[in-house]
């Protein structure tokens, strides 16, 4: 089946040199999800696309072909590159690694695309990186069909209360537990306050950010496959 994609908004997720002057690109588009294309001749010295086909540049692309690997026929930038620097740059790379693992080829992901673009914008501002990433991950899970059940106790149906502790399973939800708050919490037990803060998207305190990270990491893990995320290891060693 022949696919033709015309002037679709896109972002470059991954770039790999291919043959002498070409490259294989993984692009993220709203209507076709992840698209893999061959960009012929872009590594030539005179290629004008070199500076354009870079990560974090809002692109418009056209491509066509059969099967999974299409041929890029046109690319231009829609607007200026999101100027990510320093740690925000590493966060961006982390996002790309996550997206490459969760996005399906040729399946529309308009909402994730919009959220991704908002994250890039947020990463260029002076927001807390961790907060931006966690909220994106939460929304990503929602778009993938795994909305985190953060509002109520899944056994009793009572609303989550800030001062209690809950055992949280990403699929089954929260169940109140009675253990001392003073000792270090087990891996899958969270403070009610953290669950509520994550539900409302208000991640301010460091302790809440840490809980959110722990929770979302567990929830995201089944979607990322068995290999560890390289960018996570890199970020840690930074």
């Amino acid at each position: 089946m022949k696919t033709t994609i015309t002037l679709q908004p896109a972002y470059l997720l991954h770039y790999r040199a291919y043959r002498d002057t070409s490259a294989l690109l993984d692009l993220f588009t709203p209507e076709y999800g992840r698209v893999s294309v061959v960009a012929k001749g872009i590594r030539r010295e005179k290629s004008s696309l070199k500076g354009v086909l870079q990560p974090f540049v809002p692109l418009l692309i056209s491509c066509q072909g059969k099967g999974d690997l299409l041929t890029l026929t046109h690319a231009e930038s829609r607007s200026a590159v999101w100027p990510l620097a320093g740690e925000a740059l590493f966060s961006g790379m982390y996002l790309h690694e996550v997206l490459i693992r969760v996005l399906k080829r040729m399946a529309p992901e308009t909402e994730i695309f919009r959220a991704y673009e908002l994250v890039l914008k947020a990463l260029t501002r002076q927001y807390t990186l961790e907060k931006v990433l966690r909220l994106f991950e939460k929304y990503l899970l929602h778009c993938l069909g795994y909305t985190l059940p953060l509002y109520q106790d899944s056994q009793t149906g009572h609303p989550i209360e800030a001062e209690f502790l809950y055992h949280f399973d990403p699929e089954k939800g929260a169940v109140k537990v009675n253990i001392s708050q003073k000792t270090e919490l087990p891996e899958d037990v969270y403070r009610g306050a953290s669950l509520l803060a994550l539900a409302r998207g208000v991640l301010i305190e460091n302790s809440i950010l840490r809980d959110a990270k722990r929770l979302i990491r567990r929830a995201l893990a089944p979607h990322l496959g068995p290999r560890p995320l390289n960018s996570r290891l890199l970020f840690k060693s930074l």
């Binding site: 004008s48 696309l49 070199k50 500076g51 354009v52 540049v57 930038s77 590159v81």
Partner: peptide, 13 residues
């Protein structure tokens, strides 16, 4: 005129 917008943005920054 012929510089790609990405490079130009960096040059301005």
């Amino acid at each position: 005129e012929y510089i790609d917008s990405n490079t130009l943005a960096h040059a301005f920054n």
